[in-house]
């Protein structure tokens, strides 16, 4: 059984989709089989991965019963990466998707996908819609990109309460893998102050050590519909996501071992 990790945030435009795509690419480069699940009805992840918005084979069609799970998996050409799109092509589908996202069927679908892949990364829509709730309820762990802005931090409590509520109600095994400082402008002293304050105030394991900077490369990658690591001149960013993916694997293993008898790493052979 692979691990299902939801990338989620209470805010939009904080880098959830970019983080999902690039961590997925990095995990795939490390040899893992990875499935990216687009959980945003606006299909941000599908667009970021170079897929058109319209498709007749997606989560919507699966929940509708017109396609099987196998039929909605889109496999990348040259890597162990796969994608499940939302299948939403009309505004009416968004409402229908939210309504048809029946708990048991969606949960089973995510579990079946996790059986086939080492990692299922779910890119959720921002906020706390019913689809997001159900998808996170199917996840083993959540990762939260967090911009270093005052309002983002001040609006955090409600979202953390939401995650706690999820754990108390539908997914008792849900773990918090960590928050990622995303879109950091290192030349902005206010952002640096906020990072310093948050690192000082929160439990030490709250934040990933890798920080993703604000960079024009992301816009270029989005324009081409590829992960940023595809561009040779942005190998710094690609290395950063590799570090982030490595740290995610480490943190996730630690979360799995928590409460277990041993925290020893797996043997190499």
């Amino acid at each position: 059984m692979g691990r299902t990790i939801g990338i989620t945030s209470h805010l939009g435009g904080v880098g959830k989709t970019v983080t999902t795509l690039n961590i997925g690419m990095s995990l795939a480069s490390m040899g893992h089989s990875v499935l990216l699940l687009d959980g945003d009805p606006l299909a941000g992840l599908s667009l970021a991965a170079g897929q058109g918005r319209r498709t007749d084979r997606g989560l919507y069609q699966y929940l509708q019963g017109s396609h099987s799970l196998e039929e909605i998996i889109h496999t990348a050409k040259d890597s162990g990466l796969a994608l499940v799109r939302t299948g939403v092509s009309e505004p009416a589908h968004i409402f229908a998707l939210e309504q048809r996202a029946a708990w048991e069927k969606l949960w089973q679908a995510v579990r079946q996908l996790a059986d086939r892949y080492d990692y299922v990364l779910i890119d959720t829509a921002c906020g706390q819609s019913s689809l997001t709730t159900l998808l996170l309820g199917s996840a083993d762990a959540v990762v939260m990109p967090l911009p270093c802005r005052t309002l983002a931090v001040k609006s955090l409590p409600l979202f953390l309460q939401f995650l706690l509520r999820l754990r108390q109600t539908i997914q008792p095994d849900l773990r918090f893998a960590g928050a990622i400082f995303s879109m950091v402008d290192s030349l902005n002293p206010y952002e640096m102050d906020i990072i310093a304050d948050l690192r000082q105030s929160f439990p030490a394991s709250t934040f990933f050590s890798t920080v993703i900077p604000l960079d024009r490369a992301f816009e270029k990658a989005a324009a081409h519909g590829v992960p940023v690591g595809i561009f040779r001149e942005y190998d710094d960013l690609a290395r950063g996501y590799t570090d982030l993916a490595t740290e995610l694997v480490q943190r996730d293993r630690k979360l799995q071992n928590k409460g277990g008898s041993s925290e020893q790493p797996d043997p190499l052979f």
């Binding site: 998996i73 990348a76 050409k77 040259d78 890597s79 086939r116 590829v226 992960p227 480490q250 790493p265």
Partner: peptide, 25 residues
């Protein structure tokens, strides 16, 4: 750059080797 996904292809993913263990932070 080439897009990483082909249009509407449905090939099943190939099995991948187990990942090496990562060092502790």
């Amino acid at each position: 750059p080439e897009p990483i996904f082909a249009d509407e292809s449905t090939a099943t993913p190939a099995p991948t080797p187990a990942a090496p263990p990562q060092s502790e932070p």
